[in-house]
Design a protein around this nucleic acid. Sequence first.
DNA 1: CGCGGTGTTGAGACCTGTCAAGACGTGTGG
DNA 2: CCACACGTCTTGACAGGTCTCAACACCGCG
Lengths: 239, 239
Amino acid sequence: MISLHLRKLRQRDQISEDEEQAIRALVSDVREVRAGTLVVRQGDEMKHSCLLARGWAARSRDMQDGRRQLIELHVSGDFVDLHSFSLKRLDHNIVTLTQSTIATVPHERLLALTERHPHLARVYWLATNLDAAIQREWTVSLGRRSALQRVAHLFCELRLRLAVIGLADEQAFDFPLTQHEIAECLGMTPVHANRMLQELRRKGLIRLEQRRATILDEPGLRRLADFHDHYLYLERRSR
Amino acid sequence: MISLHLRKLRQRDQISEDEEQAIRALVSDVREVRAGTLVVRQGDEMKHSCLLARGWAARSRDMQDGRRQLIELHVSGDFVDLHSFSLKRLDHNIVTLTQSTIATVPHERLLALTERHPHLARVYWLATNLDAAIQREWTVSLGRRSALQRVAHLFCELRLRLAVIGLADEQAFDFPLTQHEIAECLGMTPVHANRMLQELRRKGLIRLEQRRATILDEPGLRRLADFHDHYLYLERRSR
DNA sequence: CGCGGTGTTGAGACCTGTCAAGACGTGTGG
DNA sequence: CCACACGTCTTGACAGGTCTCAACACCGCG
């Protein structure tokens, strides 16, 4: 159920058997939800956090004119609103982008876990800091990269993040987002996202068909996007 | 020395006398640095974090073409790279924007603090999550707000953040950034930042002179920027 | 078979960037 | 005290990237 989550944690730190049991015991409840489900609404008082066991989800903000900004993408194994454990209410929505499996983790269990396992407290603290690092990179993209670069950068990021959990190989991965949603991530219009994707295809950098993305020339794509994977902190070390 | 830092923490949670002592004992070293100092370089191995006791600083990323994106602004009392306690190296630089006072906090002391005071561990976890919330809002700005709105939004945010530490009154605050630096925060060119500032002045929303900002019509500015202060989590609650 | 969601294309408008020049203030050295 | 250099702010003309609006093709699904 949450094996992808554990795999992700273990990418960055060691987790003992004992700790693994404690983590598995966090989950109080599991449910299957459809694409487009509003899992957490902005401003709601939270008494639990949501672990995305399987599927795609996003943090999102609705603007007053009806447009939407997707603030961060989440994939299988992500603790999508671990930060609500500190914040108690969120400044954004959490929505699913595909059918998903959501595991619920009561905050009281997280509190007990962090008091009993200070190391896991640091591991989860790190997890929210990794989210923040991705966020920073998106800020850099939106502030200083062209539309074409932003699209390229997103594909570089996603392949790596999916590879960590074994959902991408060297070249390809399942990619269920619509062009509209890509545009909502990258601060552009769907029409322009479409043209930028065509440009990447024309340059022979990616292929995108049947909800599956193939990266044909990763070095080229990285060069175009000015992509460096430092911000994903893929190396393991003890914390 | 770090009284503004404590004031900021107490805005969101209660800190006991005992805890205050523990926090004060974190600092190993204090130094005065000039504007433009590179306090932490991207990628460096960190064994301490830096508390900005006084002054203005920023997280920044240099692009390959020499442009720069300021990723987040920091004001007096901010723990500018608390996240390096988890991450061990940063994906961005920390630079001062004015003359500043920097207090150094060894990670080993933070480790001891969090093991001995689980509540303070949560308080500091929250602090990094507050940074991340600001980051998200900047992502929203860059993705979905016009240049004019972004400038307006920044001034709304800064007045509130400075008010928390008593460095802004209802109307005005010292604001040392150049238009070039404003542009680097907001993902635009200095020329355009200049024009947007003029536009805000022309509309009678702000005044900006002698490194001091005055907000003439805060409701109007907020309306223009679509600003809501939820993301700053200004209410106090125990965590 | 029709419908809604998705992807595609074109033309024109608009926002923002680029380039270049000049004004202004401040600090420094002669 | 003046001359000068430098950073900052300002302005104008033009270029270019992205948005808007509209239409159409395609496809899966009810």
